[in-house]
């Protein structure tokens, strides 16, 4: 029977090593299947986070041959003739083997002011499809954090104290573009959110398993909104002459 050779990182925050496993190859097999085979037949204590095995839960993010992927969506026959090296995500602190501590992302999410609306005056507001279709794309996010992991600001420049990361930009975009949200988060984006740290090299968008256009539809429109407010005196003048729906500054 044809075999795949997996070289899996084993270790914890004190250090680790690569271990080699031979796994019988079956049609349609994905990397997560091979990891489960290793757990069942060789090392029951191999730590891996997973849940749905259907690319819906975003749990099984790892780096396969140097590329951040969902293990449940990465077929082994893609690597015929080469070893498959499976490593934990680089950007987050290692807990054990393939499991990293992604709690930083949730701590950042808590700093984003939630959806805020005003009580309707007069007739009830009817939500039209044209008003919510942009945010619907952002709601596809499964929080696999592959975008946060591959973002070079967080991955290589240790920018966690300066930049919220692509996942948070998607979340902010979904709120900012909501027809009934009344908060203005451009100040947050410019200061604590650090949107200017993103140099739009699109790795987040290239890797997104949900194919969300993170850069084109979330980050660049947010950069334009920041530019509207802070770098465009012409539009500021027009806004002061013809004030439209004013948003309240978020804190």
């Amino acid at each position: 029977m044809e075999e795949a050779i997996l070289r899996v990182f084993r270790g914890d925050s004190n250090g680790g090593e690569e271990r080699i496993y031979r796994v019988p190859l079956k049609p349609g097999m994905v990397v997560l299947d091979a990891i489960h085979y290793i757990q069942a037949h060789y090392d029951a204590d191999l730590a891996v986070r997973w849940n749905c095995k259907a690319a819906r839960c975003g749990s099984c993010s790892a780096e396969v041959n140097g590329r951040p992927r969902l293990m449940c969506k990465t077929r082994l026959d893609e690597f015929r003739g080469t070893d498959v090296r499976v490593y934990p995500l680089k950007t987050f602190p290692l807990i054990k083997d393939l499991v990293t501590d992604v709690s930083w992302n949730y701590q950042v999410a808590r700093q984003i002011p939630p959806f805020t609306h005003k009580e309707p005056e007069g007739k009830p507001f009817i939500v039209h499809q044209v008003d919510v279709e942009r945010a619907q794309e952002f709601h596809k996010c499964i929080e696999c954090f592959l975008c946060q992991n591959v973002c070079h600001v967080l991955r290589d420049h240790e920018g966690q104290s300066a930049y919220f990361g692509p996942r948070s930009m998607v979340k902010i975009a979904s709120l900012e573009m909501h027809p009934k949200d009344v908060l203005d988060r451009t100040g947050l984006l410019r200061e604590k959110g650090g949107i200017a740290y993103c140099n739009i090299t699109k790795c987040c968008e290239d890797l997104c398993p949900e194919e969300i256009h993170i850069t084109d539809n979330a980050i660049i429109p947010l950069k334009e909104r920041v530019a509207d407010k802070y770098y465009d005196p012409l539009r500021a003048l027009l806004r002061s002459l013809a004030p439209s729906r004013r948003r309240e500054e978020s804190t």
């Binding site: 925050s13 780096e63 041959n65 140097g66 290692l94 950042v108």
Partner: peptide, 20 residues
């Protein structure tokens, strides 16, 4: 702002680099 300390457990020298 929240910071995190990345573990040096997987050194960059060991971590595979994409070969494409």
């Amino acid at each position: 702002m929240i910071t995190q300390t990345r573990s040096p457990a997987v050194s960059s020298a060991v971590r595979p680099i994409r070969q494409d």
